[in-house]
Simulated assay, not measured.
Amino acid sequence: MIGKMIRLERILNRETGRTVIVPMDHGVTVGPIEGLIDMKTTVNSVAMGGANAIVMHKGLVSTGHRRRGRDVGLIIHLSGSTSLSPFPNAKTLVCSVEEAIKLGADAVSIHVNIGDGTEREMLADFGQVSREARDWGMPLLAMVYPRGEKIKDEYEPRVIKHAARLGAELGADIVKVSYTGAVESFREVVAGSPVPVVIAGGPKMNSDREILEMVKGSIEAGGSGVSIGRNVFQHRNPTRMVGAISLLVHENSTVDEALAFLQTPDLER
């Protein structure tokens, strides 16, 4: 699987084995929100900040192709749903692994909501994508969230552990889950997954420190990085925010060091 190894090196930092991913697939779900209107500018901003990869849908690949400046890994998202649907948690396949390869993807991703009434169909899609990705030597990022009638708290460590393990069991090379809120409980999530675990950013947070403390906690717990969207591309300075997160993920900096970097725009790294 040399092809998969080569592609994974474009997503995971060779030295740290960690990654800073910025998902930008929100347009399908909620439309052209702030930060995702001028896509070329946003992609350039996060790439210059040091992001390892971005996530986007197939129709916007041209906005992520950079002929000049710092390159960034491309993960094409294969599933989607809209907030306007009566079943917003039911993700449907809208792209294939082969199509993503033709578009130049370094990896593909899929979103599954376990606990939803359509879980059965999403798991079937997951299995199909996993098989195709393995056949083509294409890395697979699985975004797995506990969401549905039986889920009382989608951040409960027990269900987050289940989500991460399911992703690994069904063939993902990297699993994205929500942070549990504490180092100790997230350490259990990481321990239960034989593949790298990265955290989601969730809704827009109230402060920069809150974001950075969440990232630091996940790294201390053994996490392999982040896949943070709105808290990056809607930040007043996405380039600096990516740089601050990268300090935590790749250089084991403290939250105060990352915050100082973020708050000093003219500081040269």
Rank of each mutant, 00 (worst) to 15 (best):
L12Q: 02
N13D: 15
V22F: 04
P23C: 10
G27E: 03
G27P: 05
T29E: 15
T29N: 14
I37S: 12
D38H: 12
D38F: 11
K40Y: 14
S45P: 08
G50W: 14
M56S: 08
V61G: 14
T63N: 14
R68C: 10
V72M: 10
L74W: 08
I76R: 04
S81C: 13
S85K: 12
F87W: 11
A90G: 11
S96D: 07
V97W: 03
E98I: 03
L103T: 02
A105C: 01
A107I: 01
V108H: 07
N113V: 04
D116A: 12
L123R: 11
D125F: 01
Q128C: 02
E132N: 04
E132F: 00
R134I: 07
A142D: 02
P146F: 00
E149N: 08
K152M: 14
K161H: 08
R165A: 07
G171S: 06
Y179T: 01
G181M: 00
V183E: 07
V183Q: 05
F186A: 00
V195M: 00
A200H: 09
D208R: 10
G222A: 02
G225E: 03
G225L: 03
V226H: 02
I228V: 06
I228F: 01
F233T: 00
Q234W: 09
N237F: 05
A244R: 11
E251H: 14
N252P: 05
A260G: 05
D266V: 12
E268R: 12
